[in-house]
Design a protein around this nucleic acid. Structure first.
Length: 872
RNA sequence: GGGGAAUUAGCUCAGUUGGGAGAGCGUCGGUUUUGCACGCCGAAGGUCACCGGUUCGAGCCCGGUAUUCUCCA
């Protein structure tokens, strides 16, 4: 049975049972910032389980993309060692939100497995939670499983909970018995004979702070069945890696590496590469890019480990990007976004592979130094050095170990681990500190704010609560600053890159200004925090006030936000569909837009983008905002930004046919209000991500005006026209440089004339020629080279003095043969005392400085006195 | 979020008691050659990331900022 059939059967079975088919959510959890990656089918339904959100259906079925590489479920280190661990995998699941419960869930599971997937009932075993008699009875009496094949187990295996507090409940697992050749008929933890097929979770309690289990009013069902494992069983194989989900990838890699696929030593490498490449493709197509922290760092680590194992297979150059295309071929049928991003995925992988190779090459140099040192000395490489090599330069310990082995050098593995442990502890401590430092506002969850600011700029509101220094207080007086919470507000709170509104509030007795607005998200609604300063009067909870936003500023913000949407679609139109938003900032002065793209934009491309947008502005397209179901919006072709949090109903902003984006920000009524759009900068912010800054509307026009004014002034000053001014300035620059050079050479010529005179006038001491001269108009460079020339020509000593920048500058050169008698470094220090300064240098060349020289003759005499003591 | 490292010519990088900014490759010119490559000779190219401090003097020492690399969470 092909994996595609397995999927079809799964979906059609639950569709027949009136389940709503829900698409896999992206690997970045949309609504849960505490989670690095989606790691279970239920993630996207979390708020439904928590009853914070209601959806149009009570039963759902999905096949969910999942990653288990961090946090509680971390299989990263297991991949390759076993036949069934993965970083990326797909979870099939059916869900009930207060609809059916245990009995139905168990029946469905049994029916699907035995009748549709044709499992032999004899080969299925069951586990239930020891205190869950209901489930036991259902399995035993209703389904008819022999008692000895239903195992009761404890909290660890068969009780599931979302977190310390929250929904939880017992679960029941269905196991497949692979037969006696794999071990005794005994369902225990480490018996390889049994493989877990399906986990059914019965969410029936809510665990409170005291640890008490309270029954949920509407119990829920959450189930999960890994498709890779199910496929391996249905295809009669003993490894997930032999199924049609992995085999083609492994065969492709084997051919590419030109190795014998049967050799045992290659197996681990091949498995890891296949697994990791799959993970890479899905992560990248969901918008994650390599970086040095967070999700991007996990992506980088996955890629680097794949690359490492590739080297073991003999790949000396980049190769993963080639395999990625095979993964796309294999999975595009079920995940069209892969095909869509095919080139982008391989480009990202290729450039990250290249980067890793550079890092390795760099680290190799440093490592070789360590290795040579170790060979010279004690034959062991210190753990500290190894740690620095991997910590600072990213050179993996494994590589160091192998290379050291080749040279019979030992490495201090324990020392390395000690350093690593130290670093981990440090990071953990800082994390705890950070968690403590986030101060929460007490009782804030009691309140809710309704946002009315899409249409209204003013609002009559009731004050709910006041916080001063993060403490709830009964009143706020004149000139005090604090956070105000209202029942409703026209003030937009900072989110989606758009800054918060500012404005004022007032009633008959008081007047205050609002300098920023922030928001705490709570499920679907939010609490708006108005950062305020009371200018007059006093406020107490319950007071009615009129809230008025700064309309002019809001208009400018909306101009930039709507422009951002146009910019996004312009970039996709002109550069290609790989362009994805990866960050955005919008305020009243400008907009900033970060997006995925590999090369700098050319001048031409930027102009095209500007033209595109300004054309849309002139067309004065009507902008529409609609509230609709998430799925409906996606069907309409909306672009969803993964980082954003969406609830099941979303706000779709469309600009004619050219842009459809999910967005909670404030926008214009039509594009004409933008007036003008101009890009002001384009730069790189990290590899594969570029940033455009632009201005629009009034600030846009001001920007253009300011620049043109500067330009006009330049034209006016040089008396040139627009088409000649550039060439004129280039020529001017060229001429200036030539003149400067002529001046330099003529100075040299002048010196040459002087040199002979100076040498003629030099004094002598004990047959050593000594030149002491003062120059008013020479720079340091000229003095240095002149001094050099003088001491060489006379084969003696040259001491030159000058005043530069209000200080004296003295330079002394000594001919090489004399340096054992005359050390200029020592002498210059004494000379420096004459000008209350200090100096130093080498025996043959030294410099000093101090107060300006007023009388050269007395200084010269002082110098001669000093020299007299040295030369006898 | 926390730590480490780096930033010097177009590129790859040297540069230690703080004292004159360098190499290789590339570019350009000359020479050699029927022509090219090589070879030889020569030249151009620098705000030593930015800002501040210490010092007579900072690429180098100290503090801050930016960017990049890297590890941990």
């Amino acid at each position: 049975m092909k994996n595609s059939e397995i999927r079809d059967i799964f979906y059609s079975f639950f569709k027949k049972k009136n389940h709503h088919k829900v698409l896999s959510s992206p690997l970045i959890p949309a609504k849960d910032p505490t989670l690095l990656f989606t790691n279970a089918g239920m993630n996207q339904f979390k708020s439904v389980f928590l009853q914070e959100e209601k959806r149009g259906y009570k039963k759902a079925v999905s096949i969910q993309k999942c990653m288990r590489v961090s946090g509680k479920h971390n299989d990263f280190d297991e991949v390759g060692k076993t036949e069934y661990h993965h970083t990326f995998f797909e979870m099939m699941g059916n869900f009930s939100f207060g609809d059916y419960f245990k009995e139905q869930a168990i029946e469905y599971a049994w029916e699907l497995l035995t009748e549709n997937y044709k499992f032999n009932p004899e080969q299925l075993w069951i586990s239930v939670y020891k205190k869950d008699e209901d489930s036991f009875k259902i399995w035993e009496q209703h389904i008819g499983i022999p008692t000895h094949k239903i195992i009761r187990s404890g909290d660890k295996d068969n009780f599931w909970q979302m977190g310390e507090t929250g929904p939880c409940g017992p679960c029941s697992e269905i196991y497949f018995d692979r037969g006696e050749i794999y071990g005794p008929a005994d369902l225990t933890e480490n018996n390889k004979r049994f493989v877990e097929v399906w986990n059914l979770v019965f969410m029936q309690y809510y665990k409170d702070k005291e640890g008490k289990l309270n029954p949920l009013p509407a119990p829920c069902i959450d189930t999960g069945m890994g498709i890779e494992r199910l496929t391996s069983i249905l295809q009669g194989l003993d490894s997930n890696y032999k199924t049609d989900l992995f085999k083609p990838i492994i065969e492709f890699t084997t051919d590419l590496a030109n190795i014998n696929p049967d050799e045992k030593e290659h197996q681990i490498n091949l498995k890891i590469i296949a697994d990791h490449t799959r993970a890479l493709c899905f992560l990248i197509s969901d918008g994650i890019l390599p970086s040095n922290d967070g999700r991007g760092y996990v992506l980088r680590r996955i890629l680097r480990r794949a690359a490492k194992h590739g080297k073991a297979l003999g790949f000396s150059d980049t190769f993963i990007y080639k395999i990625s295309s095979k993964v796309v071929d294999l999975m595009k049928e079920f995940y069209p976004e892969l095909e869509y991003n095919r080139d982008f995925i391989s480009q990202v992988i290729l450039s990250e592979e290249e980067r890793f190779n550079r890092t390795l090459l760099n680290g190799l140099k440093i490592f070789e130094d360590l290795l040579n040192k170790a060979i010279e000395k004690k034959n062991i490489i210190p753990g500290e050095d190894l740690f620095k090599l991997s910590d600072t330069f990213g050179f993996p310990l494994d590589f160091a170990k192998d290379l050291a082995n080749e040279k019979n050098v030992k490495i201090d593995y324990n020392g390395f681990q000690k350093e690593l442990k130290k670093q981990k502890e440090k990071s953990r401590i800082n994390l705890i500190k950070k968690q403590k430092s986030i101060q929460t506002l007490e009782n804030i969850n009691k309140y809710r704010t309704e946002f009315t600011g899409y249409n209204n700029f003013e609002e009559e509101a009731t004050l709910l609560s006041i916080y001063i220094n993060n403490k709830e207080t009964p009143s706020i007086k004149e000139s005090q600053k604090g956070i105000l919470v209202f029942d409703k507000t026209p003030f937009y709170a900072e989110s989606g890159g758009q800054v918060g509104d500012i404005g004022i509030g007032k009633n008959d007795n008081s007047y205050f200004i609002i300098i920023d607005t922030q928001k705490i998200n709570y499920g679907k609604s939010g609490i708006f925090l108005h950062f305020s300063e009371i200018k007059k009067g006093e406020l107490k909870p319950g007071d009615k006030v009129r809230l008025i936003i700064d309309k002019n500023r809001r208009q400018k913000i909306s101009v930039h936000h709507s422009s951002t949407h146009l910019l996004h679609s312009a970039l996709r139109e002109i550069l290609g569909l790989h362009v994805k938003q990866s960050g955005s900032y919008v305020d009243n002065n400008k907009l900033r837009f970060d997006f995925t793209h590999f090369k700098p934009l050319t001048q031409e491309e930027i102009e095209k983008v500007e033209n595109f947008i300004n054309q849309k502005v002139r067309e004065n397209i009507h902008m529409k905002s609609e509230i609709m179901e998430y799925e409906e919006a996606i069907e309409k072709g909306a672009i969803a930004i993964f980082e954003e949090k969406y609830s099941d109903t979303v706000r779709l902003i469309s600009i004619g046919n050219c842009s459809k984006e999910l967005c909670g920000g404030t926008h214009l009524n039509s594009t004409g209000e933008i007036g003008v759009f101009k890009v002001i900068s384009e730069s790189s912010i990290s590899s594969g991500i570029r940033r455009i800054e632009a201005v629009a509307g009034e600030p846009g026009f001001n920007h253009i005006q300011k620049y043109l004014n500067t330009f006009y002034n330049i034209q006016l000053h040089f008396k040139q026209k627009q088409n000649t001014i550039f060439e004129f300035l280039i020529n001017l620059d060229k001429n200036l440089k030539q003149k400067g050079k002529r001046l330099e050479t003529s100075n040299k010529n002048n010196e040459k004339i002087n040199i002979n005179k100076i040498i003629d006038n030099c004094s002598q001491m004990n047959n050593i020629k000594i030149i002491i001269e003062y120059f008013e108009n020479l720079g340091k460079k000229e003095l240095n080279s002149l001094s050099d020339e003088l001491k060489n020509k006379t084969r003696g000593i040259s001491i030159l003095l000058s005043n530069i920048n209000g200080k004296s500058y003295i330079i002394m050169s000594v001919f090489n043969d004399l340096t054992n008698i005359i050390n200029s470094r020592n002498i210059i220090k004494e000379i420096a005392k004459l000008v209350n300064g200090n100096g130093g240098g080498r025996p043959d060349f030294a410099q000093a400085g101090g107060e300006p020289i007023k009388n050269f003759k007395t200084t010269k005499k002082g110098i001669l006195d000093i020299l007299n003591r040295y030369i006898k």
